[in-house]
């Protein structure tokens, strides 16, 4: 299977001389096509920093990052914008929907930005709306729908342009347990049926148990990594809890 993402010796240092803080010490990471990987770790471990760097919103202090065979460290701002638009999909904790656009318009925004013809946009949006079961609310505005619906809208937007990699940042953080489960099941289905590659940063062991692999980081370093393999979700969930317990600290 093809490698989608390869990060090597990624370091990120904040602050100025004399007052340096290493958020990421030395991270190596490889994600293959069709993977569903979770990133976990206590608060301050560097999860968000890593995600920001992988999503090209922030730049690493040193290290190499290849996504879809492109070195994102060497790109200029314009290339990065295009790269994000074409290769990445985002799901954020606070949805990040535009409240002046309808659900449908929010979903089709990445396609519109890439100047896809209107009839093809229509087709894509309807397909995805069916996948996430939000067909009825397509013409509503974000402030009229529930949190779960918002997050499914955000997820639809993330995958509408067929990105190489979907980055999810605490997608269930603001959802009740029912909506959270429903979203995670949708992501799981997406991964299994469409072979979408998903990287999810989360606090929540329950959310992480939907992944195929979970990477733990602590103090800016890789701590350990566990695979689901043939275990049931419950067993995997238990294993994650064990690792978290050994990690210690608040998470």
């Amino acid at each position: 299977m093809q490698t989608i993402l390869r990060a090597k010796n990624v370091q990120k240092v904040f602050g100025t001389k004399g007052n340096l803080y290493k958020a990421l010490e030395d991270i190596d990471l490889e994600i293959k096509e069709g993977e569903f990987i979770g990133i976990m770790g206590p608060s301050g471990a560097g999860k968000s920093t890593l995600l920001n760097i992988l999503s090209t919103i922030d730049t690493p202090s040193s290290g190499e990052i290849m996504i879809a065979n492109q070195n994102i460290v060497r790109m200029n701002e314009e290339q990065l914008s295009d790269f994000r638009r074409n290769k990445l999909g985002f799901i954020f904790q606070d949805y990040n929907l535009l409240d002046t656009l309808t659900v449908k318009e929010n979903i089709l925004l990445p396609l519109a930005l890439s100047k896809v013809p209107a009839n093809e946009i229509e087709k894509r949006v309807n397909e995805i709306a069916d996948t996430f079961g939000i067909r009825e609310i397509l013409d509503k505005y974000p402030y009229h729908i529930s949190g779960g619906q918002k997050q499914r809208t955000a997820a639809s937007r993330a995958i509408v342009a067929n990105p190489s990699l979907i980055l999810a940042d605490e997608p269930t953080g603001a959802l009740d347990s029912k909506s959270a489960t429903s979203l995670l099941e949708s992501l799981n289905a997406l991964n299994e049926q469409n072979q979408s590659t998903i990287m999810m940063v989360t606090h929540d062991a329950y959310a992480a148990s939907f992944c195929k692999r979970v990477l733990f980081i602590k103090d800016g370093r890789t701590y350990t990594e566990i695979h689901k393999n043939h275990q049931s979700r419950q067993e995997f969930f238990q294993k994650i809890l064990d690792v978290l317990a050994s990690l210690g600290g608040g998470h």
Partner: peptide, 15 residues
Amino acid sequence: GRYEILHKIGVNKKE
């Protein structure tokens, strides 16, 4: 906030 979202989903500065 809106423009921040747009920046994240890949709208470049020129646009």
